[in-house]
């Protein structure tokens, strides 16, 4: 029987970018979307400086805007592009607010963003990846957080599966895939093999070419792509699975999501 926490839709809500210009209006729009997702019974997922763009952190938005954190309905992304002090500021902030679910990823760097050093998190390698970050959080915060890790079915399978095993060994409690648009043999394989939940990311933008650009892999004819139909098809291919919805259009798609995502 799947856990309802893992079968509800996880809806990505992009945090506002840094900047004073129209800040109040941008914060209000974020808060409205956040509340809309929560009210519908889904989970809000807040990214961490996605694509290297400097944005506000999820926990500071929740705190400053007085947003609710119902159990299992908020997930925050956390990547390796922070100072150690800021990493703990985020983790401690999440703990205080009751945000228990984190998606731990390597992340996208940028000149403006600092990077954790291996020595700071007890790593011996040349750089810090999500594996070292997962292990560090587990060591310092025990079972306080439910940790997720990413899986990319577009990378060479042998390499990606080896990395996935290291993520699970480091403490990942669940996996979220990169966006898939149809049944994927590799995803089927890890769903069968792993003892932890595998959540599937669905691409909700009609611009499929953007996803092709992101993953560096041609996904075929982009002109006829219908994200909602794709999501419905994925539900049929993977019954009982949880879905992470990226780039969901709140005006045209939110109220038309297929049933099966709300807990």
């Amino acid at each position: 029987m799947p856990n309802s926490q893992d079968t509800r839709y996880r809806v990505e809500v992009s945090p506002p970018k840094h900047g004073a210009e129209t800040l109040t209006a941008r914060l209000e729009r974020f808060a409205a979307r956040y509340r809309q997702v929560i009210a519908a019974g889904h989970a809000v997922c807040i990214t961490d400086n996605a694509m290297g763009h400097l944005c506000f952190q999820g926990h500071e938005l929740i705190r400053e805007l007085g947003l609710p954190v119902p159990p299992g309905q908020v997930m925050i992304h956390l990547n390796t592009f922070h100072t150690l002090a800021d990493l703990h500021w985020i983790l401690d902030g999440c703990a205080e607010l009751g945000v228990t679910e984190l998606l731990v990823v390597s992340g996208d760097g940028a000149a403006r963003l600092p990077k954790l050093a291996p020595a700071e998190v007890g790593g011996a390698g040349a750089s810090v990846t999500s594996v070292e970050l997962l292990a560090y959080i587990r060591r310092h915060y025990g079972r306080q957080f439910r940790l997720g890790a990413a899986f990319n079915p577009y990378e060479p399978a042998e390499h990606e599966l080896e990395k996935l095993r290291r993520k699970v060994a480091a403490g990942a409690d669940f996996i979220i895939t990169q966006p898939i648009t149809r049944a994927n043999p590799l995803v089927g394989q890890i769903k069968g093999e792993l003892k932890i939940p595998v959540i599937l990311e669905a691409w909700m933008s009609p611009k499929l070419s953007l996803l092709s650009d992101c993953i560096g892999y041609d996904l075929g004819d982009a002109s006829a792509f219908d994200p909602l139909a794709c999501l419905a098809e994925l539900h049929r291919s993977y019954p009982g699975s949880g879905f992470y919805l990226a780039l969901l259009d709140f005006k045209t798609q939110f109220d038309r999501l297929p049933a099966g995502g709300a807990a």
Binding site: H18, A20, L23, L61, H82, D86, R112, L113, P114
Partner: peptide, 15 residues
Amino acid sequence: NQPRVPRLSGWLAAE
């Protein structure tokens, strides 16, 4: 130095 990343509270005060 490594410049810090400003906080939301800082931006709200700055606004």
